[in-house]
Structures are given as structure tokens and as C-alpha cells.
Amino acid sequence: MKAPFDIILRAMVLPGARPTDDEGHQVIPDFASSPKHPRSRRISRQERIRRTLRRYLLAWIGLGLVTLVTLAAVFAPWLSPYTPDAMNLANELAGPSRAHLFGTGDNGVDVLTHVLYGARISLLVAMLTTLVSVVVGVSLGALAGYAGGMVDGLLMRLVDVVLAFPGILLAIFITAVLGPAVEHLILALALTGWVGYARLARGQVMALRDREYVQAARALGATPLRVVVRHLLPNIAGPILVSATFGLPAVILAEVALSFLGLGVPPGTPSWGALLESGSQYLLVAPHLAAFPGLAVIITVLGFNFLGDGIRDRLDPRGRRAG
């Protein structure tokens, strides 16, 4: 299981896509035979600035989208034109209009209001799940990487076993048995979510634990806990942040899938997945019911992915030297 995972990591987290030459100029690797691009070429300062801007353009867009959605979630009660349970039976399943920008749903509820409140629930679930996964995963992974030996062996076997589970299926089983509730959803998703972070933290800690500054700290009598918390964790925070930025949208999608299957949030809770589920039942008469929550999910997930790409590029040491 280790080898393919390394490949994923290499492709998704640390791509060697932007190598530099000895003086830190970007090198454009290209197919040597193409006459337009010589195998390597120095680029002017202007060109470099333009390129940097363009490279981070998507990241800025991502940050903008994420901020927008987060603000919408936080201020949902003030932004919403109606209350979530305000009904208007005379105006059921109507398309978008000036009074209802996203149209109305079953019983005439305002879809925009539901999408805004849905942002609260979907983001809350995603953030809490990611937080729990990161805390558990990084603690165990750092422990395994620092302690090595038996502890490491046992923990990594456990990781192997959990990785062999289809995570979403386990989540389906757990939420099906426990019943739909936000806490159950978080529990079910974090139960398999921590392993990725554990692997990453372990690898990073192992790579750093014999560096001079760590040895120096040890020689000065720092306890293992202090070495890990004060010296190692700050130095591995970058890759973990990148990983969490990619993990969070995955949790949003998992929530959508589970709620769509009727297993996520309790009935009546307007999470994005639940809205998609109820909307897809009116596909023929009122396609806007499924369209808007779906677009909200896409914008959010895309925003996080753009942002994650940008942070990763920034943290990749080879990329940084060029910038």
C-alpha cells in the first residue's frame, strides 16, 4: 500500500513540476525536440512576475471563493431574505424571481435562504471532521514517526488496515446504524479520515527527527514531547495544512453523498446534500431546486482546491526559490 500512496503524494502534494536551475531561475522542462522551447531557458524578471501572478491567480480566486462562502455561512441569518421555515403555499416550486432569487421550493420556502443556511451545516461538518482527523492523525503519526520501532510498526499496521477499508462505506454503515445526526456524521467520517494525516505526519517527522536542530534540542535536555511540539510540529505544519486544504472539500463531498443517500443530517436540516436530495425529486418541475445547492457545493469545493494548489506551490521549496 505504501508505494502507490507515495505516488499519489508525489503527484498531488509535492509535484516536481517547477524545477529551477542552480541560480534559482525557473527552468521550463520541455520536450527537447520542440524548436519553440529550448530545453532550458532563463526568463526575464518581468516575465517572472507575470508568471507568478498568473500562477497564483487561481489561488487568489480560490481564497476569494472560500472567504465568500465562509462569510455567507457565518452571516446566514442576516443575509437571508426570509427565515428558513417561512412558507408561502401560494408560491410553491416557482423559478427564480426578484422576490426569490433562487426560486422557491416545497411549500414555497425560499431556496436562497436554505442554501445560505446549508452552508453553515455543510461547512461546520467539514471543518469539525477535518479538525478531529488532523488532531488525531497528526498526534498518532508524530508519535509513530518519533518513537519508531514497535510503536511505529503497530501504528502503521493499523493505518494499513484502516486504509484497506472503503471509508465512505464504513461511514454509510455507521450513520445507518446510529441514525442521521451531525455528530454521527462527523464521527463516521473522522473514523477513517485521520489515517491520511497520520501517514503524512509520520513521514515528515521521520525526515526531520535527526536534523541538527532537533539533536541540539535533545542534547539540551528537551523532553520528547517538547521536541515534537516545539520543534517538529511547526516545521511540518505546511504540508499538513496543504493536505487539510484538500481534505476539507473531500469531506464536503462525502457529506453531500451521505445526505443525498438520506444518511447524513436529520430530515429537515438544510445541508447542501439534503437540499440536493430533496431537489432531485422535483427535477422535472423545478430543476432550480437541485441546481443552486449543487452550484454552491461546486463553488466551495473548487475554491478549496484552487487554494490548496496555490498553497502547495508556495510551500514547495523548489517553487519558492524561484519566486
Binding site: 521550463i28 522542462p29 520541455d30 487561481l58 472539500p249 463531498l253 453531500v256 453523498a257 443525498f260 446534500g273 440536493l276 436530495e277 431537489g279 432531485s280 427535477l283 430543476p287 437541485a290 441546481a291 445547492p293 449543487g294 452550484l295 457545493v297 461546486i298 469545493v301 473548487l302 482546491n305 484552487f306 494548489d309
Partner: peptide
């Protein structure tokens, strides 16, 4: 690599992983 085709394909792939099935299917 580095051309509009490349960027287009990679944006497509980022969008592709961001679209929930529960939305794509109905669409």
C-alpha cells in the same frame, strides 16, 4: 505544458473532482 490547452485541461480536472455526483447525475 504551460499552454492554454494545458491550463484548460487542468482546470477541467479540478472542476471534475469538485462536482458532486448527486448534482452531475440530475443535470
Amino acid at each position: 505544458q504551460g499552454t492554454a490547452t494545458d491550463h484548460g485541461a487542468m482546470i477541467f480536472s479540478l472542476v471534475g473532482v469538485s462536482v458532486p455526483q448527486a448534482w452531475l447525475g440530475p443535470v
